[in-house]
Write a protein that binds this DNA or RNA. Sequence first.
DNA 1: TCCTTTTGTGAACGGTCGTGCTATTTCTTG
DNA 2: CAAGAAATAGCACGACCGTTCACAAAAGGA
Lengths: 203, 203
Amino acid sequence: MLRGERTRAAVLAHAMDIASVEGLEGLSIGRLAAELDVSKSGVFARFGSKEELQLATVAAAAEVFVDAVVRPALAVPPGVDRLWHLCDGWLGYSRGRIFPGGCFFFSAAAEYDARPGRVRDAIAAALAEWSGVLERAAEDARQLGQLESTCDARQLAFELAALGSAANASSVLHDDDAAYELARTGMLTRLRALATDPSTLPA
Amino acid sequence: MLRGERTRAAVLAHAMDIASVEGLEGLSIGRLAAELDVSKSGVFARFGSKEELQLATVAAAAEVFVDAVVRPALAVPPGVDRLWHLCDGWLGYSRGRIFPGGCFFFSAAAEYDARPGRVRDAIAAALAEWSGVLERAAEDARQLGQLESTCDARQLAFELAALGSAANASSVLHDDDAAYELARTGMLTRLRALATDPSTLPA
DNA sequence: TCCTTTTGTGAACGGTCGTGCTATTTCTTG
DNA sequence: CAAGAAATAGCACGACCGTTCACAAAAGGA
């Protein structure tokens, strides 16, 4: 009962790395088995189908993401500080290549965005949750009086996420970290323009 | 000699549509042949290899993009007006689903960003060119005195492109056009903040 | 210890993939 | 119209895919 969980975790760990580079479709059971030195049917039997393997991979990646970005930021009190921690944490998560192909969900979403099915639904749900976290943090900051009362939390969250995604995309495609500085600058400019006390934000 | 060009164009037109939805890897020669009612080897022989087909598809998509977005905007004189036309044209191009899976290059870049090879290089070059067009338009506007002289054209271009990409991603993934309004608002806010005469920008 | 359940193996299946090859059709041109 | 070139069809190949199934190893509870 313990042995099963261990190999399952090993498979998923490898699956996330492959998928972030080659896509969830490029994730083949045969290749996974070969690289982990187990039998193809062993991998297959554990998940029942390729789609289930993909769904499990998405779920595992969501856990990694939450641990890397969301949990640390939720440990700081609500307000602009927490909002900034979400942004900065996301940039660190992408830049640190926790997944070798950059943000797992950026790759997965682009791959499945136009293909109906359970995999797409799972990816869309994960991304919607992330948007929700960001937007809620912005709205909290507004209601705490740390952002202008007139500001639109949804708009702000959209723009912050857009800058992060663009930095991820550009840095992976061009193998160049410069975009992270552009994203950071953009995020801070946005926050400073809306913060009632900009001095609490980093330089 | 004419017949050859015609089928080549038909193949590429279909290939672009497939690739924007299923990816350049999902683009299979057999499927392409079946859906176009020609023989597999007929399609293959015309391109020589799958990689050449992919490269030709990228080149064809670049032409479509230039026709849809760049050319119209370059028809208006340099300045903030042209810069805005580039942004607005891009949103229209994505929203209009000229490619059924949204922006071709967004999908292709996410698919190949972490996979070295000629296909990735071609995609990276196309996107770099687009960034260059955007940045040059911003810099022109600045030098014409239509944007604050202190503004950073590269930063502005990065942010405008980020908003567009995010709108494309969100709208395709969630099947919801709302993101285009967010992107448009963000773009206009950015431009208004830097324009010396904001009244020239649309409402 | 024996028995049952869980985990993993190995071989095989039908299918699709990219890619060569050899005809055969279709156009162009003298 | 005939000869030659260009374009397409048809077929076969090896490789890999997801999936199935019968069976062996290992683990756990009685």
